[in-house]
Amino acid sequence: MSRLGVNIDHVATVREARKTNEPDPVWAATLAELGGADGITLHLREDRRHIQDRDVRIMIETVAVPTNLELATAEDVLAIACELRPSQATLVPERREEVTTEGGLDVVGQQDKVAAAVGRLQDAGIVVSLFLDPDPQQIEAGLATGAQAIELHTGAYAHASAKGPASDQFAELERAAKQIRDAGILLNAGHGLTYRNVRPVAQIEGMYELNIGHSIIARAIMVGLEQAVRDMKRLVSQ
């Protein structure tokens, strides 16, 4: 049975649209817990477009479930992660012009830098995951960094599934999942997963955790966050 990590970034997106103090993503994390979330995911971007330093600090101190902090390999966010020590840190790529994270981390092109960030976070007692495309070379390079988990970027599968069958993209995920399982580290996945396309990914052998945000927050506007999390948890758990 796969675990469900609920990404609460877009609660902060609404708050930052008016630069007020509501809605509070910390409150959202509590509601997600009540709905059955197994973990809370949040992304501290370099430009602080949604989650703020204050959010990370309070959430790590208050939520009862594990926290997964997404971050780039930039010095300032690495320093914050090492100070606050979330349960897990997931290294992701960042581009200022993107709306949301697009594509997996390029470990092949910066293996030494990524490995140094992995080591630094692990020295602080943090489990480290890498957000990677289902590309054999990237996964092999990621394994060489010593990371304890790899989160597969499911964007290509999600985009294809919105238009029809996504058998080719799903087959890539399955091949990548086997490569990660064979290496003996944790297998996670996320990006673009919805109530309509999540079940096949949740059923991939060895899938440990799915990190889902936008679809849950979008449904929460209609039914409330606790119910939206319960609905997704039911699909992931079946």
Score class of each variant (00 low, 15 high):
E102K: 06
T13C: 13
W27E: 15
L173R: 02
I212G: 12
L78S: 10
R18T: 13
L71Y: 01
G109L: 00
F170E: 07
I126M: 09
H10W: 02
G119Y: 07
T154I: 10
V6R: 05
G109M: 01
R57P: 05
I40L: 11
V108L: 00
A89I: 05
N211T: 11
Q122F: 04
A81T: 12
E70M: 02
L193I: 04
L130R: 06
N211C: 11
I217S: 03
R85Q: 14
G224T: 09
V107Y: 02
I204P: 13
F131H: 03
A228I: 12
T90P: 07
L173Y: 05
A218P: 04
R196S: 15
E98R: 02
S129M: 06
A177Q: 07
A189K: 04
A202R: 07
V127Y: 02
T100G: 12
I51F: 05
T67C: 11
G142C: 03
S129C: 13
H43L: 07
S161Q: 08
A29K: 00
L173T: 12
A81C: 08
E151D: 07
R48A: 12
V14I: 15
E102F: 10
V201R: 07
D133N: 14
L186A: 15
G125W: 01
A149G: 02
D106I: 02
L143V: 09
A32K: 01
I204C: 10
R49W: 06
M59Y: 03
A218I: 06
D53F: 02
A64E: 13
A160L: 03
H50C: 10
I221D: 04
L71C: 03
H10S: 13
D24E: 03
L42E: 05
E16M: 14
I212M: 14
L186M: 13
D135G: 08
N68M: 03
D47K: 00
G125E: 08
I58P: 01
N21V: 14
A183N: 09
A28F: 00
V223K: 01
A156T: 15
S87K: 01
